[in-house]
């Protein structure tokens, strides 16, 4: 097993483009090392991106933030402007694992691990985030919802890697929220995750909305009908019940050690409704 630590994006792409059997990108390592240790996965090459400046910084890119794919959650939770702009994304990231995990785990890693239960992914989807992907043909930018294609499978090619995540800057009237259900209060994988982003006008009328669920289908789900349910309303109880119903209808979960189909579907509605209320309050709609 070979470990490489490129200093630039192009060096990294060059290593990835060589025909090695199993190459793994190492960001925080909180999934990769567990998979290696359990014997589940043994890469031939490990490419550590934490020496690449673009991957290890939170950069101001005019109208947007670029969050390096190697930036640990703990650093995100200390970033005042990011928290103000995207409280839901930051709380989703912060919910992953323990304080110790937060010292290492990254948004980019959570995305590329491609777990249906990843906490930050529904939140990034609801926030309309994108990721910057580097490859042999230069950079491309992809919507987050297009990255995870099946459990453990992503649309990132073997010779590509995610350099950073793009998130818009703060905007008045817009806010997001993420809630997940776990049996304990910490340290579990989401049984259900629900992310809601709303944009409201000064009167508290919803102008736009995006809702995404985690752990209820093979990949994260976008509730397509959410905008038409929410736009034009003040997210009153009746509207939220409709949203909850839509959330349940969009679920296609499995029975596994972490939850049953019935339970996941039921709780998806509850959390969607609760997260929508929080997002609405945060946007100033209370």
């Amino acid at each position: 097993m070979i470990y490489e630590r490129p200093n630039t994006v192009s060096e990294a792409v060059e290593i990835l483009s060589k025909s090695h059997e199993k190459k793994s990108i190492l960001a925080g390592g909180t999934d990769l090392l567990v998979q290696m240790r359990s014997g589940y996965y043994r890469p031939s090459h490990i490419v550590d991106i934490k020496n690449i400046p673009e991957a290890t910084q939170i950069r101001d890119d005019g109208d947007t933030f670029l969050v390096g794919a190697g930036v640990p959650g703990a650093q995100l939770s200390e970033h005042v402007e990011l928290i103000k702009a995207w409280p839901g994304v930051i709380e989703a990231m912060d919910l992953i694992g323990s304080t110790q995990i937060q010292g290492r785990a990254t948004l980019g890693g959570n995305l590329c691990n491609a777990s249906p239960a990843a906490d930050s992914v529904p939140a990034m989807i609801a926030a309309d985030a994108t990721c910057i992907i580097a490859g042999p043909n230069g950079y491309r930018e992809e919507k987050i919802e297009n990255v995870v294609t099946a459990p453990g499978v992503s649309s990132i090619a073997n010779n590509e890697f995610v350099v950073s995540i793009r998130l818009a800057k703060f905007k008045t009237g817009r806010a997001d929220a993420y809630l997940r259900f776990i049996p304990r209060t910490e340290m579990d994988i989401a049984v259900v995750g629900a992310a809601v982003c709303v944009l409201i006008d000064k009167k508290g009328i919803c102008l736009n909305a995006k809702v995404s669920l985690g752990a209820v289908a093979p990949t994260q789900v976008v509730i397509e009908t959410a905008p038409q349910i929410l736009i034009g309303t003040r997210l009153d109880e009746e509207t939220l019940d409709k949203l909850a119903k839509a959330a349940r209808a969009s679920c296609n979960p499995i029975d596994d050690k972490r939850g049953t189909i019935e339970y996941r579907t039921s709780v998806a509605g509850v959390l969607t409704k609760r997260a929508a209320k929080i997002a609405f309050d945060r946007a100033g709609g209370a």
Partner: peptide
């Protein structure tokens, strides 16, 4: 009382052989 259990699949293989899914109480519980 609340969360600890062994989860076996149909072949009699344990599905939760770790502290992630064998859920002992944590400090915040």
């Amino acid at each position: 009382a609340l969360n600890e259990e062994y989860i076996y699949d149909e072949e009699g293989k344990l599905q939760n052989a770790g502290f992630l899914d064998y859920r002992i109480p944590v400090a915040s519980d």
